[in-house]
């Protein structure tokens, strides 16, 4: 299983792997917002956490459709389906590798982009923490979407449409926890805990659904 994790990491940083494409997209989305909204620093710092979360959500959806499709195209998926190792475990490890390659760089890049949005140190820290807790959930939900669309040659948009409604709770609690850190009366911990619960919930449901979809999608 460690070998699968390392292989997927290697593939994502080699040519055409697309680990950095997510970060570049994130950077682009966040960087154009100040130009569109105008140089109102108070407004920027107020909408900052929300913009960072929207950017990170869209960026982490970007490479998801290739999660199983690339394996299917070269025949690797057939062999993965045949092993004694439960398919759920294989899917979970692939999700972890995908998140490490595409989700973690977004978390690491978020403080720099927070500066673009004139966010305070506390707001930047809180947003980074919520992204760290919340983005794995997006990948885990996305795995189920990617598995459903695995046989469709241009399933990228379909995956996004399938995944976005399920990712809305992640967005709501991620953003509300980030705001709670800077706005005084609202408590920070409860929304963060719910976000963590959502991630753990999808760590079970996501791979299970994806494994079922992959089994029935074989042709």
């Amino acid at each position: 299983m460690i070998s699968l994790f390392l292989r997927d990491l290697k593939l994502s940083v080699r040519a055409g792997g697309g680990a950095l494409i997510g970060v570049l997209f994130f950077l682009t989305v966040v960087a154009v917002v100040p130009f569109a909204v105008g140089p109102d620093l108070n407004l920027l710092s107020r909408i900052g956490p929300a913009i960072l979360w929207i950017g990170a959500l869209l960026a982490s959806l970007l490479g998801l459709d290739r999660l199983f499709q690339a394996e299917r195209e070269d025949g690797s998926l057939d062999l993965m389906l045949m092993q004694e190792t439960p398919l759920v475990v294989t899917v979970l490890v692939k999700c972890l590798a995908h998140w490490t390659a595409t989700g973690l760089p977004l978390v690491i890049a978020s403080p720099v982009l927070g500066l673009f949005m004139n966010m305070s140190e506390i707001a930047i820290g809180a947003t980074m923490l919520t992204l760290l807790v919340g983005t794995p959930a997006v990948t885990l939900i996305g795995a189920a979407g990617a598995a459903v669309a695995v046989t469709l040659p241009r399933g990228g948009l379909l995956v996004s449409i399938l995944v976005l409604p399920l990712a809305i709770p992640v967005l709501i609690f991620g953003v509300s926890a980030s705001y709670a850190a800077v706005e005084d009366p609202a408590p920070f911990l409860p929304p963060l805990m719910i976000l963590l619960a959502i991630t753990l919930f999808f760590a079970v449901i996501g791979p299970l659904a994806a494994a079922l979809a992959l089994r029935s999608a074989s042709d």
Binding site: R7, G75, D78, Q83
Partner: peptide, 26 residues
């Protein structure tokens, strides 16, 4: 199962491919 497709990654070296399958399949 050796199908029409080779189940090897073009981006990885032959050794990396074989080492992965050896360790993954057991």
């Amino acid at each position: 199962y050796l199908g029409h497709r080779n189940a090897m990654k073009r981006e990885l070296t032959v050794t990396e491919n074989l080492a992965f399958w050896k360790s993954f399949m057991g």
